[in-house]
Write a protein that binds this DNA or RNA. Structure first.
Lengths: 241, 241
DNA sequence: ACAAATATAATAGTAATACTATCATAATGC
DNA sequence: GCATTATGATAGTATTACTATTATATTTGT
């Protein structure tokens, strides 16, 4: 997806124009038929985000989704072979979108410390709606990512799915930020571990703040999770922010 | 459980004797009938650890468990109202056991820096078998905790279950280590966040090392996860180890 | 504009899952 | 040795996660 993006960047000078033509690309092995390619496919995405955010992934079924979007179970199965694959699609889209936003957010910024700080904010802060992608409600999708995304890889099929490349978006994002850390401190031994623990941790801590508050420290009047990780990451790699 | 433990500690001088009488207590609302109280109950625990570690929690059913231990579905349902509650039992037992080991591991050690270091090792390092608990295979249970424990709270029932007190063991462990952090640096703002992110993170990174190695940095010849967290925690709270 | 191709809806069906219910038998406790 | 309790055997149900078939729209190429 980023290849396409940079390619387009080189051809156009006006970003606003570009943005409306950008599409987040998701690994083709995740779906049977590209949901972006039809009205029904888009309704499946929009509707599943609403429904999963509402009732949770365990209670979510294609039958319920079908009735909520006025279609049928069999039609949905032509797009996704299982509800697990649909969740994988949603989270992959989220990672693709995050990478896209990261690339723009860091464009033309040289100082790696500033780059890293921006990356941390982007990955740990609340998500806002992005009107460039009409049929995706990003904040709602983010709620799903917080509560359900671990389930995407905590299965017995991880190794096979990983071989199929369905997690490359996430891995690329981690690598990208890991590289910034190495620019700041080339000797730091655990850049990927630090980044993945930050991303996963930010989700978990946000979930804890809502449901198991004793497990975290969500202080009033501050964006605790982002502050916590800014402090932690810069101290750990050995540079004051 | 720790109340009982300290009480017994005060009465006996020989720990070895004590240990064989200790039992990890799990919140009564988790089970319908205490599995420790009967041979079948113990077989359910032993057998479910084997089976879940083998086939994963999604594929695990009471029917399969029944056949593997030579009993019936209906009999298992007399102990646990669902497979979710059984997983909750297993993870709660793990947290109770961790707390028990933590208390012993820190006994008579005054220096909070040493106490914290020991706590980090205990929570991030590989788990070894504990022969004081005959029908529980702790390393195998730990594998389940790594791969499945998030599923215990990532459900729509979290709030209700939390109110029922089923997560108190975990919360107590986090509070205990948070207190050590505050002894070292009373001004550190996020002790619980740091501890829970370390515990959860250690599980996730271990899972990544096996299944999605690009997301982490598991360096040869060292216990990377423990080293990573020792370094990270002490730098973050502001004390060299 | 019309046939051909394709997408979707409607309906039905299946094996497995997550339980609940009932009753007989075995083990245990007083 | 009788009452209680635990377990086993068996059956049944609603739901889930699919697959299959056919009919009807809708789109596409010419």
């Amino acid at each position: 997806m980023i290849v396409l993006l940079l390619y387009l960047c080189a051809q156009h000078s006006n970003m606003k124009d570009l943005i409306s033509t950008v599409q987040i690309k998701v690994n083709e092995r995740i779906y049977l038929k590209d949901p972006v390619s039809s009205a029904l496919g888009q309704k499946i995405i929009t509707g599943s985000i609403d429904l999963i955010a509402d009732i949770g992934f365990e209670a979510f079924t294609f039958r319920k989704l079908a009735s909520s979007i006025g279609s049928t179970e069999a039609s949905i199965y032509r797009y996704f072979e299982s509800k697990h694959k649909l969740l994988l699609y949603l989270t992959s889209w989220h990672w693709g979108w995050m990478e896209y936003r990261l690339v723009f957010s860091l464009a033309n910024i040289e100082d790696p410390v500033v780059r890293l700080e921006k990356a941390i904010v982007l990955l740990t802060n609340k998500v806002e709606e992005d009107h460039n992608f009409a049929f995706i409600n990003e904040p709602k999708l983010w709620e799903i990512v917080i509560a359900e995304s671990s389930k995407v890889y905590l299965t017995k099929d991880v190794d096979q799915e990983n071989q199929d490349g369905v997690f490359t978006g996430y891995k690329r994002l981690v690598a990208r930020i890991g590289d910034i850390i190495l620019e700041i401190n080339p000797k730091y031994k655990y850049p990927h571990m630090l980044v993945s623990s930050m991303i996963e941790g930010a989700h978990h801590e946000r979930y804890f703040a809502r449901h198991l508050p004793k497990l975290t420290n969500d202080l009033k009047g501050e964006n605790s999770i982002t502050e916590f990780y800014k402090d932690l990451v810069f101290k750990t790699i050995g540079n004051a922010a």
